[in-house]
Design a binder for these strands. Structure first.
Lengths: 360, 360
DNA sequence: CTGAAAGCGCTTACAG
DNA sequence: CTGAAAGCGCTTACAG
């Protein structure tokens, strides 16, 4: 049973601190956690000794006794080759991670092939007490993860959800507003036939966007359709080809993300259609890529990092609440965050070279 | 002290399994961990009961008693806005994660602003026993992280390192070979003046590439220089402008990654230089982006996911070794992995539309 | 081949 | 205001 010391310097424990301070381990724990029931001088003395000794809690010990993992989980069910070209996720993860690490909470990241694998990951995290809560991204229209986390009692927030699903807090990504801005911009330029190359129809945010797209078109008296893709550039290229073979050719195309927009741009260039003289194109997601290609792409810009941070913050709150109502069988409270107010900054349409008046 | 039960189903412990099986907790632990010293029938019976009960180890408990976190750490010291456009990292993380999760090891991800913050993260992970080992990316020419992990006795592998640094295992990313292939391709096309827009000079792999670049040029009797950047597209654009203002204009430019290559392409197009008729360009990193832009970019393709998996595998081995030599004060063994054999697949140059013979 | 027990490093009601 | 003690759920030498 004697611990193998392992290489490297020794890590002090509360027992060491207690001994040096001449108090019990309990008092050290109280001081370290800011619990009441300790005189100010004693607390300060203990804190100073712990600081000086470079004490840090053994997270496993703390997790075991406090029933708190000190970690949140994020499983992403998109193939790596897709993730690799979507600037959205690194930004989102960065925002989540910043919020969490400011609170000393770790982020466990797992990439999985599909929703089934993601659910296995969620169950395993729960069973092993690896995480205190999870972030759910890419909500499906009918999403099997929601009943799973609800049944497990695993605190969860939906990142980018479209609206109330069960009782989980959700954070829509300004989808409606961003689509609206894009359509209004194009209509103002004189376009009346606007098509869209969309993401997977099974994603809830795609549905939200499609609804917003239809409504915005109708309000403006314009027409247009949305073609679903699997987010691959091949699918985006194929959809673009289909659109430009139509008669009449659409004068504007909206792409659900930047890489698809660039793929579409390539197809248009090969079809000898000039952008924006013949066809205007817009990306629903802004990135450096939009700035860098020629012509540069008009794109909807929003603060994805702040968005991730907000969702992470809500998850932390939820976890704290769940721990507070200890033993209460009931579930997370209904969303009490303002929907469509994900970050501090409102989305804005960055107008670049890829949009202009329609031909003729 | 009674645990708050918390919401959701109950999680069985080894005590539950032991009771149902009519054995001691120790025996259950032995059965579950495949330790010898248990009759086959007993082992099978225990396993069946655990399986049926859906038992999973409480990772905190296991970590505390076994002194193993069951997690590895990866801290990335690049600003999020840069990470967001580099397909390399998602692929790398995906490969690492796949290897780790196959062994039930979690990946802790942290994004930090600089190497100092990364070192704080490493120290904190070590002090809290959050991780059993770490992966070090973006090795600097003089890298302060190396002495830190060595002093702490924290198992670590260098992902993409250029060669032996201290005693840490390292995995070079085929840099020399990839640079060589590119230069040879361009020389074969007839280029004799090849410049390069490189990454930060402080990165060790940039240095490796620069050395390989010089050697390859010298071998071919060609000339050329490398301009360092901070990987931003602004810097890439500025470097490209500087190059095309030279006399004579280089006939070929190599970019250390794909986004910089696209930024360079934009500058060339605006300077009315045709690619590849006036200038050929090549990206040292392949991605969908290279396929999608017009002209499509010739790029060096290699299996980054396998690379990440290999490094993660080595780290796991290192951790096992360190645990095996328990108490031995000595350090990790000198690298015993084959350098420059990172993945199963060799890098290949994918020739696309952006390279051709020099003008004249 | 199996069991009883100590220990990992914390937290937290409970006495004093 | 402080201390002694139990407990979190595992692992692991040590007896039998």
């Amino acid at each position: 049973m004697p611990r193998r010391p392992g290489p490297g310097p020794r890590r002090p424990t509360i027992a060491d601190i207690a001994e040096r301070a001449g108090v019990s381990k309990g008092s050290v724990s109280y001081a370290l956690n800011g619990n009441p029931g300790l005189s100010e001088p004693t607390r300060r003395r203990i804190l100073a000794i712990a600081e000086e000794a470079g004490w840090r809690p053994n997270r496993a010990a703390r997790a075991l006794s406090a029933s708190r993992a000190g970690a949140c989980g994020l499983a992403v069910a998109r193939p790596a080759h897709l993730l690799a070209y979507d600037p959205f996720f690194p930004k989102l993860i960065s925002g989540i991670e910043a919020e969490l690490s400011a609170r000393q909470i770790a982020l466990m990241l797992q990439m999985v092939d599909d929703v089934e694998a993601e659910m296995r990951a969620l169950r395993r995290w729960w069973a092993e007490r690896r995480v205190d809560g999870v972030l759910l991204v890419d909500l499906r229209v009918v999403d099997p993860r929601v009943p799973v986390v609800e049944q497990l009692g695993l605190p969860a927030v939906i990142v980018g959800g479209p609206g109330p699903t069960g009782k989980l807090p959700y954070f829509p990504g300004h989808d409606t507003q961003r689509i609206r801005q894009i359509v209004e911009h194009l209509v103002r330029l004189g376009h009346c036939r606007i098509d869209r190359v969309a993401g997977p129809a099974a994603f809830a945010h795609t549905q939200t966007r499609t609804r917003a797209f239809r409504e915005a078109l109708a309000r403006a008296g314009a027409m247009g359709t949305a073609l679903s893709t699997d987010y691959t550039t091949q699918a985006a290229a194929a959809a673009t080809k289909k659109l430009v073979e139509r008669c009449p050719v659409p004068t504007a195309i909206v792409y659900d993300n930047d890489m698809m927009a660039v793929a579409g741009l390539g197809v248009l260039q090969e079809a000898s259609l000039a952008v924006p003289e013949d066809v205007s194109i817009v990306s629903l997601e802004d990135s450096i890529l939009c700035e860098v290609v020629r012509p540069s792409l008009t794109a909807s810009s929003w603060d994805v990092e702040a968005f991730g941070a907000t969702a992470a913050h809500a998850l932390v709150k939820l976890i704290d609440e769940a721990a507070g109502h200890h033993g209460v069988a009931g579930h997370h409270r209904v969303n009490d965050f303002t929907p469509d107010a994900a970050g501090p900054a409102e989305p804005t349409l960055v107008v670049r070279a890829s949009t202009g008046p329609p031909p003729g």
